[in-house]
Amino acid sequence: MIEIRDVSKTYGSTVVVDGVSLTLPKGGLTAIIGPNGAGKSTLLSMVARLLPMDSGQVMVDGLDVARTPGDALARRLAFLRQDNHMVARLTVRDLVTFGRYPYSRGRPTREDQGHVERALGYLGLSDLSERYLDELSGGQRQRAFVAMVLCQDTDYMLFDEPLNNLDIRHAVGMMKLLKGAAKDFAKTVVVVLHDINFASCYADHIVVMRDGKLFLQGTPDDIVRPEILSSIYATDFAVHDLDGHRIATYFT
């Protein structure tokens, strides 16, 4: 369980995250949605201890992220940002092997190698494993990073816009993968999403942020409604029931 207690973050005089309290249940896929500048990524960064918070506290399974040693937390919680710039020239396998660093400290054991192979297989990267990252397309690179996070084998996985750079096939594949990890391995997956329909079809729980505050939370059935979506995004929405999913349209 991730407990976020009254967390705030200010840049200068701009309040980016404003007293958010939120409990994310263990297991399942939680989507965080909201307009640009709502503080979604900032909140996730603070949960992942990448950003110090100005006030408040985040507990992961009862561990305070600000006080727990980094390596202990790295075996429970993994985080992937939206853009991952890298100077070093690495192969896909090198990168994915880094996911085992919290366990093996740079000396991967046979068991670690097994994790690496499985993660490469999941993401369909086995054939590309000896390629250098700078020789891959944006989508392939994104999948390599996700493989690294999977390899870290943590109970909690946080993703900041993992569908960036992915085409339709790989975006669907990614969401299926994350959903599968949540379901089959009882992982807790938290994803910042921009595509409301992906959230509607895959999330177990949707958290809505607006203006740095927690705006709403609930199941897709609670959130994906025309009047609610219009109040979040200030755009007209229509919601259709298609094959058992609620699909929002907002293009015209």
Partner: peptide, 14 residues
Amino acid sequence: DVMALGRETAISLG
């Protein structure tokens, strides 16, 4: 090697 991955990834890896 982990430090060379950048701050965010390094912290995430503990």
